[in-house]
Write a protein that binds this DNA or RNA. Sequence first.
DNA 1: TCTGGGGTCCTAGGACCC
DNA 2: TCTGGGGTCCTAGGACCC
Length: 415
Amino acid sequence: MTARMEVDEDTAADAAAPRGTASILHADLDSFYASVEQRDRPELRGRPVIVGGGVVLAASYEAKRRGVYTPMPEHRARQLCPEVVVVPPRFDAYTEASRAVFDIFHDTTPLVEGLSIDEAFLDVGGLGRVSGTPVEIGASLRRRVLDDVGLAITVGIARTKFLAKVASGVAKPDGLLLVDPDHETEFLHPLPVGRLWGVGPVTEGKLNARGLVTVADVAALGEEHLVAMLGVASGRHLHALAHHRDPRRVDTGRRRGSIGSQTALGRGPKSADTIEALLLGIVDRVTRRMRNAGRIGRTVTLRFRYDDFSRATRARSLPHPTAATDPIRSTALAILGAESDHIAQAGLTLIGMSVGGLRDVDDGVEQLLLPFGPRDTSELDATVDRLRDRFGHAALTRASLLGRRHGFEVPKLPD
DNA sequence: TCTGGGGTCCTAGGACCC
DNA sequence: TCTGGGGTCCTAGGACCC
């Protein structure tokens, strides 16, 4: 490896460049769903546990040691490990546990970027005088999550988000690992390429087929070769990561760009009525979640999977963003109608719908209300009707607040 | 290995506009 | 009548993440 480093100009340049300090934490709860079950049911501790519903959603470390992983079919897990305990998921309990852990994150630093229900980046740079070194902060975070929430959490600490994420992956389970900024290459280069964030089975297969097995192998390659192999974005990204270049800051302002729901149907024939009923249930669920979140969206996407596991997505954009059930339902039904022949022929095994192009409902309300002022309310009634149609009844409360802020009364308020 | 449910990002072609 | 280049939006598909 040393010889490789010497011939690699990029790495040499990196080594000469001034390093930042390792102050980014990646905190990742271990086997999250399964750990919550073991926490709440002491008789499950020390035993192989999977949370499942057809496939393995999460496996305890006792089960992982037996070769069980996500998303393995449940029956396969039982073959590998006959004494495994299968627990149905309790998503409310996981959401609540996640909220408690994120409270501790936010109490640690204001710079928190959530990645999923069970992991986040924390920037603890500049907290030194108050809270200690990043390693001390990481250790105390782990203690607090265990004491207050009863869950094990692994923390990776590094100069960049990418390295912190890789570090927590290496440190699992129940660990803490600092990647010293002066020894990043030694840490990174021996790892298999599949450890890189963004390298999945397909990319790993392409790289392996060209004899590229470790990160060092990838790092020795010019960017143009990776771009030719993987495309512009992936190639550049991978090249940068292999040289531990990752300028992304911890971003506290990230918001979801789409909200969706899907359901697997199993094999066997389903009537068109059954499929339509399932879709209507999905539409209700998604639009309710949108309204609860105060988001509106424009692009309705249906997702289908067929008996042979081929997939298709069909999208249609609405003229205006909305969270109202009616326009989203009719758009979804129109897409379904256009696909009905293929569905009848190919056999549907999954149906899903999501709404993308999300914005805040306040933005939509504001856009419709903004042309009005205190002296121009002649068309306000019609506008309020349109507000209700597009965004649903709840938007009227927001419209009322916004109207007052702009100095006029919005009529037809909800009671 | 015969596959859940929630998402993100990237690519690419075509329509449309200037 | 035929032509260029750039930008944006829409749609479909694919890879990836937990």
